[in-house]
Every structure is written in C-alpha cells, then in structure tokens.
Amino acid sequence: MAMNAVAVVSVSHLNKVYQSRERRVEAIGDLTFDVAAGDFTCIVGPSGAGKTTLLKCLSGLLAPTSGAILVNGHAVVGPPAEMAVVFQEYGRSLFPWKTVRENIELPLREKKIARTERARLVDEALEAVALTGVAGSYPWQLSGGMQQRVAIARAVAYQPKVMVLDEPFAAVDAQTRADLEDLMLRLWSELDLTVIFVTHDIDEAVYLGQRVLVLSSSPTRVLDDVPIDIAGPRSQATTRVEPRFAELRTRVYRGIQQAKASVHG
C-alpha cells in the first residue's frame, strides 16, 4: 500500500507490556505498519485492542517496551513536534480559562511564530472549521460538536506533518458526528493533511479512510490492511449505500469478529 510514497509515520515491531508487581499485561504484541504522506488511515479494533496504547506510543506520551516508531524520519522519544493530537475528551482537552482563539493560538506561540502570522493561522483554521463567529467565546460555552471542532482547528493551525485523532467523535450525537466526519474529509482534501484516525466504529472507518488497519485484541497485531477503493468524493447520502462500501464494511466486520472470537476461543 502506497509503497512508492514517503512514509511519514513508520512503526516497526512495536511491543508494549504493562508490568506491575502482581501481573504483566501485554497490550501490544507486534505491530508493524507505515503511513504514507497525504494518506488518511483509519485504525479499528475491538474494544480492548490496545488502540489507546498504540496512540499514546505514537504520540510519544508512552514509551514502547520494544520496537521503533519514526515520525518524519526521527525516532519518537517524546511527543514529536511534527504531530498534532485530537483527543476523544474534547471537554478536557481545551483550556477552559482560555477563549477559543487563545486555545488555538497557544501552541503557535510555543512554536515562536510571529504575532501577525499567528493571527492569520488562527483565522484560517477557524474559517476551515466554520467557527469564525465564536473566536472570543470560552470552549465551555459551545456545544460538544463545536468544542471538538475547536480542537480540530487547533490541530490544523499547528500545521503538523501528521494529525492523530483518538476516537474524536465517540462522544457526540449521530447528526453532529456525520457533520464532523464530512468536515474531516474536507479538511483532509483541502489542506493536504496526513491523518491517522483511531475509531471503534467500522462504518466510520470505511467511510473516512483511504485505508483501514484492523487490529486484533491484545496482545495487538495487524489482522488486516484494507485499501478503501471507493472512487470519487464521499457523501453521507450516497457512499454508505454503495455496494463496494458494503463489501469493504463486511470485510472489516469479519476481521473484527474474528479478533473477538480469538479472545474467547
């Protein structure tokens, strides 16, 4: 898959073991995969598949037990500067004492970007997620979907080489979720992003991704690597009823069922 393109993220033989005095839990067995520049990769797996562990290793929040992760060619030892992360808990990932604008601007100030350039980046990001009108509001004054859009705008303005999202829409209602999915697709195609999108929702993964990685239950491995060859732009109304969508969905679904069975069996 996309072997000719440059790998922005490269994971090889990643293994993570949680070791405490009483017990030893192998969360990630042996994971190897690459993500090419400009790709939209979705990662799905049954609950307890170590998705969160993988994401924390990717974003440098957790040190792997063995194996290596390269982001933009550099080994990950701490949170990589080329990566922006959008967390599931939008209510807890925005600073409640800062306005929407200040929330988006803060990481840019850390990057020592000049004031006028910062203002431009924030304005563009707000426009991209259609939140221009609420720049001066506090995050908690906004609805859940809007808060997650602020978090996405913050990631966009940061201009990362790769954007990682951890089940970002798991806590919003169905209609908002559909809107946010389309927003992600639009941002991806317009802004030339590289996206790694973790989710437990098979439909969402197939709908959004150019490629879906199916993980097994822990100790996690890659069960299947599904290229999503649905031609043309995606649309909530038509894409989900296409025959090819159904086939891909079934393939991913079977993979997940198999993953679950292997645990119980």
Partner: peptide, 24 residues
Amino acid sequence: VLDETCRTYQIRGMSRLWNFVLPS
C-alpha cells in the same frame, strides 16, 4: 487530558506553568 495536550503541543517549562498549572 489537558496535561497530555500540553505535552503533545510542546507546551513546557514556564509556559506550561503559566498557561496550564496555575490556571487549572
């Protein structure tokens, strides 16, 4: 989660103190 947000966005040192630790 806010702490992890700071770490992923490279907000460290005095900036972390002023923008995260003290306000929270």
